[in-house]
Computed example of a mutant assay.
Amino acid sequence: MRPLRVLSVTQVAAGESQSEPKRAKRGCHSTLTFFAKDKDGTTQPHDDALVITLKIGDYDVKRVIVDGGSAAEVMYPNLYKGLGLKPKDLSPYSSPLMSFDGKLVIPEGVIRLPIQTGPEVVEVDFIVVNTYFPYTAIVGRPWLHTLGGVASSLHQKVKFPSGGRILEIQGCQSTEKEELLEFLRGNLDVFAWDPCNAPGIDPSFICHHLNVNPSVTPKKQPPQRLSKEHAKAIKEKVNKFKRVRAIKEVFYPE
């Protein structure tokens, strides 16, 4: 689709007057509203993030998360490599970012790329970070505000005005879950649902030890009275672990 217009994300100066943008808004008659019918085709109730597919550069990029709480657009390694970008393509960016696990991340750099949604193109600055994230990129307030869009994770949509009409970007809620389930089904053999499913693990890799002070004489605890059913179940579980050498019995002197 040929772009109708190209917009660029800009930084508003601290002292710049906001009167002109307000007058521009008065002349805009497009109203972005979400209705109950906008939830048709979604799984309700849910607490899913809004994940969409966007055309970034010349590629349709899946698993892009829309985060209205983010003040920047962020790109992660999978997308960086998939677009064939090199370090020489990046401009310096030294301000650290806070990751979702609370750690500071030093960006690799920043690059300006176009995002096309229907006839609208918004040029945004993607901050490139080399850290794991389950999505390919984050688009936040700079992209949303420049596009004039409103996102609703409840309705799994982004709505934005274009040429006197209201256009929509549909979230990938069902696709997201289907892809995850398909991935899990295809990799069942790598999951150990029970210690007995992973016998022969080298103790140098992982081993559980009791935090016992060797200078303290162990004390034998009085036996607990268990029902026959509980005692039988415990015995079977212990014998199962012993057979695969997940545990071993240790004798202490009285």
Results as ranks from 00 to 15, higher is better:
residue 1 M to K: 11
residue 4 L to P: 05
residue 8 S to H: 12
residue 10 T to Q: 10
residue 11 Q to S: 11
residue 13 A to R: 03
residue 15 G to F: 11
residue 21 P to F: 04
residue 22 K to D: 07
residue 26 R to V: 12
residue 35 F to A: 13
residue 44 Q to W: 13
residue 46 H to A: 12
residue 52 I to F: 04
residue 54 L to H: 02
residue 54 L to V: 03
residue 55 K to C: 08
residue 55 K to Q: 15
residue 57 G to W: 07
residue 57 G to N: 03
residue 58 D to P: 07
residue 60 D to F: 06
residue 66 V to K: 00
residue 67 D to W: 04
residue 71 A to P: 08
residue 73 E to K: 05
residue 76 Y to F: 13
residue 81 K to G: 09
residue 84 G to Q: 08
residue 93 Y to Q: 08
residue 93 Y to T: 03
residue 104 L to K: 10
residue 105 V to S: 06
residue 106 I to L: 12
residue 108 E to Q: 11
residue 110 V to G: 02
residue 111 I to V: 08
residue 115 I to Q: 00
residue 127 I to C: 01
residue 131 T to V: 12
residue 133 F to Y: 13
residue 135 Y to R: 10
residue 139 V to F: 02
residue 139 V to N: 01
residue 143 W to M: 02
residue 146 T to H: 03
residue 149 G to N: 01
residue 154 L to C: 11
residue 155 H to G: 05
residue 157 K to E: 02
residue 159 K to M: 09
residue 160 F to L: 03
residue 161 P to K: 02
residue 183 F to W: 06
residue 188 L to S: 15
residue 188 L to G: 14
residue 188 L to Y: 13
residue 189 D to A: 11
residue 192 A to T: 10
residue 194 D to C: 07
residue 197 N to L: 06
residue 199 P to T: 04
residue 203 P to G: 09
residue 218 P to M: 01
residue 221 Q to K: 13
residue 222 P to H: 01
residue 225 R to Y: 14
residue 225 R to S: 13
residue 227 S to Q: 09
residue 229 E to W: 04
residue 230 H to Y: 13
residue 234 I to G: 10
residue 235 K to M: 14
residue 237 K to A: 09
residue 241 F to K: 04
residue 244 V to Q: 04
residue 245 R to W: 06
residue 248 K to M: 07
